[in-house]
Amino acid sequence: MAITARDLMTTEVETVAPDDEISEVLTRLARAEFNGFPVAEDGKLVGIVTQHDLVHIFQPSDRTLWIPIGLPPFLESIEYGFDLSWDGLDTSLGLVKNARKPISEIMTENVVTVTPDDELDHILDLLADAESDINRLPVLENDVLVGIIARQDVIRAIRDQRRATN
């Protein structure tokens, strides 16, 4: 008997709404045992927001300063990169600037999902795709969010299946 998404999914799914403020979602995420939320409106999945999305708004990616180290005329210099994006001022300004914005401004809209009847092999393919870097898969049935599968759920199921056959 094949393991399906229905066997793996958690049915009590914590969600956030598209108009929830970023600061509110950050607070909820800090208290959660996971690192992201499906974004739902009237039971329909409209996006997903992850810890990475939230951290990214406070860390500009283009703030690296490259300094050549060596003796003039720098023919054999070594360059060291210093990331300037995490100084206290940037973080504070980012928080003030973004805290009241709705989560819909930073959520991922094109969410990879599965149905309750999708089999383990398909789920493994989605979670193992390095380019997508997916940690959780919302489960939709008739376009309604009915569950979520985390990587840990899949690992636990494989472990349990191996133990049962040994």
Rank of each mutant, 00 (worst) to 15 (best):
R162S: 15
S104K: 06
A130D: 15
I123S: 08
N142W: 09
I48G: 01
R28S: 11
A30T: 12
G88I: 04
R28F: 09
T50Y: 03
A164Y: 03
W86D: 03
A99Y: 01
I57D: 05
W86A: 05
I155F: 14
D153W: 01
E119P: 07
L93G: 04
E119Q: 09
D20H: 11
E131N: 08
P68F: 07
R162K: 12
V111S: 00
P102R: 05
L140I: 14
A128F: 03
L84Y: 04
V13R: 00
R163N: 06
I106F: 14
K101C: 06
E79R: 14
D7N: 12
L8S: 05
P138S: 02
L126W: 03
D7K: 10
A32G: 10
A164C: 03
T15P: 04
F37H: 00
I158H: 09
R6G: 14
V146Q: 02
R136T: 00
V49A: 02
V16P: 00
I106P: 05
L137D: 05
L29H: 13
T27V: 05
T10V: 09
I134T: 07
I78G: 15
S77N: 11
Q59W: 01
I103A: 15
Y80F: 14
F82D: 03
S77L: 12
E109A: 00
T113L: 07
V46P: 00
W66C: 14
G88Q: 05
T108C: 03
I22E: 06
R151I: 15
L71D: 07
G81Q: 15
P116L: 10
P73D: 11
D143I: 07
L89Q: 09
D153G: 02
A40R: 00
S85Q: 08
L145T: 02
Q51C: 13
R28T: 14
F37A: 02
F74H: 15
Q152Y: 15
S132H: 13
F82L: 06
N166S: 10
V114M: 02
G70W: 06
T115D: 08
F58E: 02
N166F: 09
I48L: 00
F58G: 06
V46R: 01
V13N: 04
G81Y: 14
N142P: 03
I67K: 13
L120R: 10
S85C: 05
T27R: 08
Y80H: 12
P38F: 01
